[in-house]
Structures are given as structure tokens and as C-alpha cells.
Write a protein that binds this DNA or RNA. Structure first.
Lengths: 142, 142
DNA sequence: ATAAACTGATGCTATATTAGTATCAGTTTG
DNA sequence: CAAACTGATACTAATATAGCATCAGTTTAT
């Protein structure tokens, strides 16, 4: 079981990078190099984040990506939703006609409950929160 | 994001069925019909459960599957582990040499934490527990 | 004794998801 | 005007998920 796919993962790392260098334009290439991500893949990921107005871009030499959303308001669950869709069972048909064995839907309820929990946890995490923890870690332990 | 894959899901439903009809041999075909699962797929799933000594089988006419494990001790997390492997990031290389950007490993820690949470929740659920909830539901609601 | 209903073992196919690549057009800067 | 960038788009590769088919052997009822 994987909670995060690569695109979500890379997106978050890129956002962390952009938060650290706020106000600056960082090129996809430099981010990819620094965080060791596949360049073209990162580019397609960034285009998504642009669509969602989380980052903006500037073309040409000295262009690149810049954070426009408030990192304190970018929840990890938002990024997950963008790249992995809703946290939910894909083909659960409980309560409707199809699933006649309503009995086993108890299982569904439990899964839903746990999904909500996960959603909630990822909702509490923000990009800013992560950045803060990183800087603490760097100051603290050797 | 899907917490359970089909094989895990079918396995749990089959175990519920076997718990309800404990001591009896139920054929894979009858379980598949009742719970509307693909017959051959269910068969391969049951073979796994046999390997893990959760159910036993009897060949021939009137043969089938029977629960041998205590349903109160079959945790849902066990079934997940059988069919989906450990709940963990597949390719996290934090703390080791490969991941040099140790900064972002803060993300890893958080994910690990949430994974543990999920694991723990699924560890609290047992087949028996689900069966109990089902029977309550049947008595209760209209 | 034999047909029908079953599992054992095994190997295959189909589909979807995930991960990543490539290319061409256009923009900006030195 | 070349180099360093993004926009748009389409493609490929790898892996995981879901499911099917087949043959061999076992048990039971008739």
C-alpha cells in the first residue's frame, strides 16, 4: 500500500523547494537537479500546479516557477487530491441497487472511517508545516 | 487512493461468509455466487488463505472451504498484508546514502506516522468484529 | 463404474495505473 | 540570435491489478 504516488511526492518536494526560495523563480531543471527528480516528469507536474494556481510561471531565460499560494494554506491533502483523486473506494456501490449483500457493507463503513482518518491527517499537514519541521531538524540534531 | 484491493476485499467477504457458516464446507462456487465475485479469482484467493492456514479445504463433491482460524483473531490488517504486502512506502531511502536531500525526509516521517495509524486501525478490526456488526445492523435498522 | 461437483496447481490474458520521455512551438534575456 | 526557459501535447514503458482457462486428481451419489 502506497499512500503517495511519485507525482504527489515530487510535487510536495518541489513545493518545499519553492517555499524555501520564495519570491524567486526557480527553473524546473534546477529543482529537478536538486531534488533528483526526472526533469520532464517534474515539468508535467508543475504544469498541473500552475493550473491550480498554486505556482505561477515565467517563460524565457531567467524564467521558471514561483510559489503564489500561501504555503501555510497548501495542505498535503490538496496535493494528493490533485494527483491521486479523492481518498475513497473507487467502485463501492453500497446503499444502491447493485450491491445486494448489504451485510458486508459494514466493511465499507469501516474503510470509509479509516479513509476519513487518513484524509484528516493529511489535511493537518501543510507545506509550510513541513518546511518548519525541516528547519527545526537542521538546527537541532547533528 | 484505494486502501483495499479486490483480492483483499473478496477475501474478507469470503471469510465473513465462512464465519457465518462455521463448521460447514462451502464451495468456492457458492461463495462466489452469493457474494457476486468472479469464481476463478475467488478460487485463487482462497488458495492463498489455505496456505496461511486461515481456511482448510476438502476436495470432491460436498467438499469446499472451511474456516480453521479463530475469526476473532483474524485481523483485517493480516489479510491486507497477505494480498497487498506491508503498509509502507515502496522506495523510501531515507536515512541511507541514496537520499541526500535529507531535508525532505520530514515528509517521509509524516507519511510513516500516518501509515502506522492506518495499520493500527486495520489491526483493531477482525473478521469476527465485522460479523458482529453485521448482525447488530440486521437486528437494528429496518 | 462413472458422472458431477469439487479442489490443486499453474500459467495465461486483459486492463488500468503509474512513471517517465520526447518534441515542437513560443518567450525572454544577454 | 543563441541559450535557457515554459506551453502544449502526445507518446512509451513498466508495473500492478483483476480475472480467466485448463488439466489433473478427489470425493460422493447413483
Amino acid at each position: 500500500m502506497k499512500l503517495l504516488t511519485k507525482n504527489t511526492d515530487y510535487a510536495i518536494r518541489a513545493l518545499i523547494e519553492l517555499t524555501v526560495h520564495k519570491e524567486e523563480y526557480l527553473s524546473a531543471r534546477s529543482i529537478a537537479n536538486k531534488q533528483k527528480m526526472p526533469f520532464q516528469f517534474l515539468r508535467s507536474i508543475m504544469q498541473e500546479l500552475i493550473k491550480y494556481k498554486i505556482v505561477s510561471s515565467k517563460e524565457g531565460v531567467k524564467g521558471g516557477l514561483k510559489l503564489i499560494a500561501d504555503p501555510a494554506k497548501i495542505k498535503i491533502v490538496d496535493i494528493i487530491r490533485i494527483f491521486q483523486g479523492e481518498i475513497e473506494l473507487s467502485d463501492c456501490m453500497f446503499q444502491q441497487k447493485i450491491c445486494e449483500n448489504r451485510k458486508t457493507c459494514v466493511l465499507r463503513k469501516e474503510i470509509k472511517r479509516i479513509e476519513k482518518l487518513v484524509e484528516n491527517e493529511f489535511g493537518k499537514l501543510t507545506v509550510k508545516g513541513l518546511v518548519k519541521k525541516i528547519s527545526k531538524q537542521e538546527k537541532g540534531g547533528k
